[in-house]
Design a protein around this nucleic acid. Structure first.
Length: 568
RNA sequence: UAGGACGUCGGCAAGCGGUAAGCCACCGGGUUUUGAUCCCGGCAUUCGCAGGUUCGAUCCCUGCCGUCCUAGCCA
């Protein structure tokens, strides 16, 4: 058989290890239907690292005919807020996923967790400990030194039951004691040295109110949550590998309705940014950025406002794959997918970021010419629009040089260039301000080149974008760069933290830009390619259609001239 | 001088005992009224290192080295 023909017998990437496990479980009949879950804690907004996680759980369920639920891991009343719940759901939907049924809440299982705690106490596998937090730390030992048994470790079942009841009903004070599992204080895995199951918190929970004075710890609760929901494959990140023995211990020592299993994969790290909720919160609270949806933030809210299409983020996540290797992905790989998506879908427009006057000296007084411009040269379906041309134009300041290098295709005295869709023009004279900076270029045009082609076959290398001064409109453009100058934030120098690497020029506001008149009425979140300048999106907050155009630069175009120029 | 996870091209990542996929980046060349897009070509005699088993090892075994995780009443 010849599989080298053009019938598309391409080699494809094998299944990642998670999908391999699931496939085996399905094939062997160990599970009949895949059930996954995405379990965010509602204490912040989702970032692209979370997106990798939920994309995995949702996709895997979809691919194998299973279901994926959304479950809030709201076991700690002091940090959680209903405010974030809406945001989380909106972000998941924006990414194109739908969870099965209503969102679940760990807090609605509190009663069952309690029963299981009682079950452990009855079995002599849990006890109430009155040691202070400091004593507990002291007696936990270290990685190389085993811990010491708590003096309260061998209380009677009856006493433990009574104390636990007092914890629950609020008789006992916050911090006075905790419920711990009785596993082994000399376990090599520190997490197994009698982990805490419940702590007393006399705080109002955003969903259960004041029903509870005790709240379960993550390790105690998480496996139970999965078991209650019939989760088959509980996916989480690598830092939970050490927790898996706990996950298993709780499920194996209590009568649970199903037996889920935990699998860990490497979380996403992106260059030039941070992916820790705590640090992102700091950026917001200390006003290093304007909010959770600041276009420089790696949050989904930020990326959305920045103009990143959800489809591009999905494609990116798909291509970085899933493995157990701690890695750092270059943000440029994300940007590549953003450009790829936008090149396909974004309509082209002209915009001048740094305007410079260009006046055609031989242009007929007051004449207006009209050209048809295609919306997307790669997509005829995208249609076209009319643009007006006159003898008084705006061009890009950076497209002119007094003394041009050899490979310069753009404007310099005496060099003929093409104005896209319009005419060939040649710079003859430069009017300057007091400091000698060009203020206006005086040019002549060749009427024979209307449409941008010369009948005599004369070629020009440079094609520039332009705007007619009579109908161009002012716009505010926001140009972004990496928030963090350091490629790998985990490699900060001694004594420095990520805040020391914040890029002071990560946001440049340009208020002198000019854009095509039609852009003034662009809808919020509408994306365009400003030819030769990059992809831009109408800002969702500050862009006012018909009144105040404000665009965010999503990402620049590939710029091979910049590379040539740098090499000299 | 603890336990665990992981080490394949500059960045991701396939490979699962039969002789190193793909993507990005990078380097050449072609097309182009965006120095964009698009197209073509190049880019690991080698899989952290050293031994061993085997006709044959990136895949198995042993030892070493390196990176990351773990001592919250956070998740």
């Amino acid at each position: 058989m010849d599989d080298s023909n053009n019938n598309g017998e391409e080699k494809t990437r094998g299944l990642d290890f998670i999908r391999q496990i699931i496939k085996e479980d399905l094939d062997s009949g160990r599970v009949s239907q895949v059930v996954t879950r995405f379990p965010p804690e509602p204490n912040g907004y989702l970032h692209i690292g979370h997106a990798k996680a939920f994309t995995l759980s949702f996709s895997v369920a979809e691919e194998f005919g299973g279901i994926c639920r959304l479950r809030y891991d709201d076991t700690n009343p002091e940090k959680e807020d209903e405010e974030f719940v809406r945001g989380i759901e909106e972000d998941i939907r924006w990414m194109g996923f739908k969870w099965e049924g209503e969102p679940r809440h760990a807090s609605s299982y509190f009663a069952r967790f309690y029963e299981w705690a009682v079950e452990l106490v009855n079995a002599g596998k849990a006890y109430v400990d009155h040691q202070s937090p400091e004593e507990m730390v002291e007696n936990r030992g270290t990685p190389t030194k085993s811990g010491l048994d708590s003096p309260y470790r061998n209380r009677s079942v009856e006493e433990n039951l009574e104390l636990l009841e007092q914890m629950r009903t609020g008789v006992l004070d916050e911090g006075s004691c905790v419920l711990r599992a009785k596993i082994a204080m000399d376990h090599v895995n520190i997490l197994m040295r009698d982990p805490t199951l419940y702590r007393i918190r006399k705080e109002t929970h955003h969903r259960t109110g004041d029903d509870w004075c005790i709240y379960p710890m993550y390790d105690f609760a998480h496996g139970f949550e999965d078991a209650i929901e019939g989760v088959t494959h509980s996916l989480c990140s690598l830092e939970f590998v050490n927790h898996r023995p706990l996950y298993d211990w709780f499920l194996d020592n209590v009568s649970v309705p199903s037996r889920p299993h935990q699998y860990e994969f490497a979380r996403l790290n992106l260059s030039h940014t941070i992916m820790s909720k705590r640090y992102l919160r700091k950026l917001v609270e200390d006003h290093h950025v304007h909010g959770w949806d600041d276009p420089r933030m790696p949050t989904l809210k930020g990326m959305r406002r920045r103009g990143y299409p959800a489809a591009a983020i999905r494609k990116f996540i798909d291509e970085i794959g899933v493995s157990k290797v701690n890695s750092l992905v270059d943000v440029e790989f994300l940007n590549f997918h953003v450009r790829e998506e936008l090149n396909r879908t974004a309509h082209r427009r002209m915009a001048v970021i740094n305007p410079l006057k260009l006046t055609i000296t031989n242009w007929p007084e007051g004449k207006i010419d009209i050209f048809t411009a295609e919306n997307n040269p790669g997509d005829t379906e995208a249609g076209s629009r009319d643009i007006k041309f006159s003898g008084e134009l705006w061009v890009e300041k950076t497209d002119y040089m007094d003394d041009a290098p050899r490979k310069w295709f753009r404007m310099t005295p005496g060099k003929e260039v093409r104005l896209k869709y319009a005419y060939y023009v040649t710079v003859n004279e430069i009017l300057r301000d007091n400091s000698g900076e060009p203020e206006e270029l005086l040019c002549t045009y060749d009427p024979e080149t209307r449409g941008g082609d010369s009948p005599d076959g004369r070629k020009v290398k440079g094609t520039l974008h332009w705007l007619s001064r009579h109908d161009a409109v002012n716009a505010e453009l926001r140009l972004f760069d990496h928030l963090i100058t350091l490629e790998d934030v985990s490699k900060a120098e001694e004594g420095k933290e990520f805040l020391d690497y914040i890029n002071p020029e990560s946001e440049l506001i340009n208020t002198e830009a000019k854009v095509e008149p039609a852009l003034a009425s662009a809808a919020a979140e509408e994306r365009f390619q400003f030819m030769r300048n990059g992809y831009f999106v109408a800002d969702t907050v500050n862009h006012i259609p018909g009144a105040k155009p404000v665009f965010n630069r999503i990402v620049g175009l590939r710029d091979s001239w910049a590379k040539i120029a740098k090499k000299g």
